[in-house]
Design a protein around this nucleic acid. Structure first.
Lengths: 204, 204
DNA sequence: GTCTATACCCGGATAGAC
DNA sequence: GTCTATCCGGGTATAGAC
């Protein structure tokens, strides 16, 4: 009951603490680079607890997604998805807001997919609905003549890349001139970049 | 003398074989996921050879870049770099051709940077000259009014993302409708996407 | 539920024989 | 130069006490 608010409070179950610790450490050091000992130490518990509560390291990974991945709620945007441009805007905003809201989880997703790790299948199961919808919108927009490109495959990846990689690379601060960037500014810029990239005339 | 042509021939030094085996395995399984034993087995030699020839696993990694990373030859394009649009085109083509020519090395670069591994510094040392030039071109184009965007930082990352991520994700074949894509088609598409994304009027 | 102690495996590195 | 044998550290997982 008082269990759901602030995870740093003491009244959180050790199981949840382990989940949060794992999420944090996986995002910082990668799955392979993080040991079960480390996770439990960070969570303030004992090594054996991972086996007891989850039955192994990989199940901790799976549990993180089941617990913290949003995106089940794509249905609520069906209206916007009727129009490719609006649909893309909604999706771009949604994705970037999620990236900003849970940087840890988004880093984990990005890492696992680029490493093509043994956990790729798990991650794909959660991510595919979103990317799949984006692909649909690209195809719809091309058919209706509002987007202009040759290959759906190619622009699909260019779009995903622009969307995900830039977020990730912010970590490499030495590459940036100005440290803090405003989220809404980023979203606006990404929308402009991508929609223009798709050959779409935008009225701003 | 006959040492330089086909690395699969028998007359290649074991040192080179180790380097090639490591490049292949790192790209497939990541640095951490690849053991020294595996590398030597793949190279047809013994475990101890890594220590003998390179002095440790990390030095094998460094040696791969020193041996196989191109890109020292940016100087030859100084003429094209006077113009932001031409410069971007040259850079985009160069980067994508490199990605296609040595998929292994480009996968390694991408992996290490997204994992922010302890080897990030090594990789950055080789990659930064290229990305730095791209940033210069973006700034130059903005000043001269041929590109139209607010923040250099943001479009810089969007551009890098589009360029690198799409290539990497081709591995996830389940996401693609058509398996094989032509390199030149990809290059043309990427140039169009990015230059339009930068708000640049292109005449095709 | 949580802890201690331990089993077991696999990684990287090296000494020393050939 | 290359191999065999071995060391040592650290990883996951579990048995059993509390």
């Amino acid at each position: 009951m008082s269990q759901q608010q602030d995870p740093s409070q003491q009244d959180v179950s050790i199981k949840t603490k382990i989940l949060l610790a794992a999420k944090k450490l996986f995002s910082q050091q990668g799955y392979d680079g993080t040991s079960v000992r480390q996770i439990c130490e960070e969570a303030g518990g004992n090594v054996a607890l991972v086996s007891y509560h989850f039955g192994g390291k990989e199940n901790v990974f799976r549990a993180i997604f089941e617990e913290y991945f949003p995106g089940k709620d794509l249905g609520q945007y069906e209206a916007e998805f009727q129009d490719p441009v609006n649909g893309m805007k909604v999706l771009i905003r949604g994705v970037l807001e999620f990236f900003a809201q849970d940087e840890e989880l988004s880093r984990i997703i990005h890492q696992e997919l680029t490493m093509q790790s043994p956990r790729t299948e798990i991650v794909e199961g959660f991510v595919m609905p979103v990317w799949g919808k984006m692909r649909e919108l690209l195809e719809m927009g091309k058919e209706r003549g509002v987007f202009h490109f040759q290959s759906v495959d190619i622009v699909f990846f260019l779009t995903i890349g622009a969307l995900t990689y830039h977020h990730n690379c912010r970590a490499v601060q030495s590459w940036m001139a100005n440290q803090e960037t405003d989220l809404n500014e980023t979203i606006e810029a990404a929308m402009g970049f991508i929609l223009q990239g798709l050959g779409c005339q935008i009225e701003k």
